[in-house]
Amino acid sequence: QLNLPENTDDWTKEDVNQWLESHKIDQKHREILTEQDVNGAVLKWLKKEHLVDMGITHGPAIQIEELFKELRK
């Protein structure tokens, strides 16, 4: 059970990391997002292209984008 703020805009980069870990996103990809200071407010704007530009491969980038879309519903 994750204990994250209800509003994703309030998520810290550590919260984002924890959420991605719960969805089995590889540590190396989570570390990239942490290094790039991606918090919840930033995550909602990220598209696959942004994630790929940061060095995340296409498969996980699509997965992260789709997971966040599902979360926002």
Score class of each variant (00 low, 15 high):
residue 1 Q to T: 09
residue 2 L to A: 05
residue 2 L to V: 04
residue 2 L to K: 12
residue 3 N to V: 01
residue 3 N to K: 05
residue 3 N to S: 09
residue 3 N to T: 04
residue 4 L to R: 04
residue 5 P to Y: 04
residue 5 P to G: 02
residue 5 P to N: 09
residue 5 P to K: 05
residue 5 P to H: 02
residue 6 E to Y: 08
residue 7 N to F: 06
residue 8 T to Q: 06
residue 8 T to H: 11
residue 8 T to F: 12
residue 8 T to A: 11
residue 9 D to M: 11
residue 9 D to G: 12
residue 10 D to I: 11
residue 10 D to Q: 05
residue 11 W to Y: 11
residue 12 T to Q: 06
residue 13 K to H: 10
residue 13 K to I: 08
residue 14 E to R: 04
residue 14 E to W: 09
residue 14 E to K: 06
residue 14 E to I: 11
residue 15 D to R: 02
residue 16 V to S: 00
residue 16 V to C: 06
residue 17 N to A: 10
residue 17 N to C: 11
residue 17 N to L: 10
residue 17 N to K: 12
residue 17 N to E: 09
residue 18 Q to F: 09
residue 18 Q to I: 02
residue 19 W to P: 00
residue 19 W to Q: 01
residue 19 W to T: 00
residue 20 L to E: 00
residue 21 E to Q: 05
residue 21 E to N: 02
residue 22 S to R: 03
residue 23 H to M: 12
residue 23 H to K: 12
residue 23 H to D: 03
residue 24 K to G: 09
residue 25 I to T: 05
residue 25 I to K: 00
residue 26 D to L: 02
residue 27 Q to I: 03
residue 27 Q to G: 06
residue 28 K to Q: 11
residue 28 K to G: 11
residue 29 H to Q: 13
residue 29 H to M: 13
residue 30 R to T: 04
residue 30 R to Q: 07
residue 31 E to I: 07
residue 31 E to S: 08
residue 31 E to N: 05
residue 31 E to R: 04
residue 32 I to K: 05
residue 32 I to E: 06
residue 32 I to F: 07
residue 33 L to K: 02
residue 33 L to A: 01
residue 33 L to H: 01
residue 35 E to I: 04
residue 36 Q to Y: 13
residue 36 Q to R: 15
residue 36 Q to G: 14
residue 37 D to W: 13
residue 37 D to R: 15
residue 37 D to I: 14
residue 38 V to P: 02
residue 38 V to C: 06
residue 39 N to D: 11
residue 40 G to L: 02
residue 41 A to N: 04
residue 41 A to R: 12
residue 41 A to V: 09
residue 42 V to C: 14
residue 42 V to R: 15
residue 42 V to H: 15
residue 43 L to V: 13
residue 43 L to N: 02
residue 43 L to Y: 07
residue 44 K to G: 13
residue 44 K to L: 10
residue 45 W to M: 15
residue 46 L to T: 08
residue 51 L to Y: 02
residue 52 V to Y: 13
residue 53 D to R: 14
residue 53 D to M: 10
residue 53 D to I: 08
residue 53 D to A: 12
residue 54 M to A: 12
residue 56 I to T: 13
residue 59 G to W: 13
residue 59 G to C: 09
residue 59 G to R: 15
residue 61 A to T: 02
residue 62 I to V: 13
residue 62 I to C: 14
residue 62 I to H: 15
residue 62 I to L: 14
residue 67 L to R: 14
residue 67 L to S: 07
residue 67 L to V: 03
residue 68 F to S: 11
residue 68 F to C: 10
residue 68 F to H: 05
residue 68 F to W: 10
residue 69 K to Y: 13
residue 69 K to L: 12
residue 70 E to R: 10
residue 70 E to I: 12
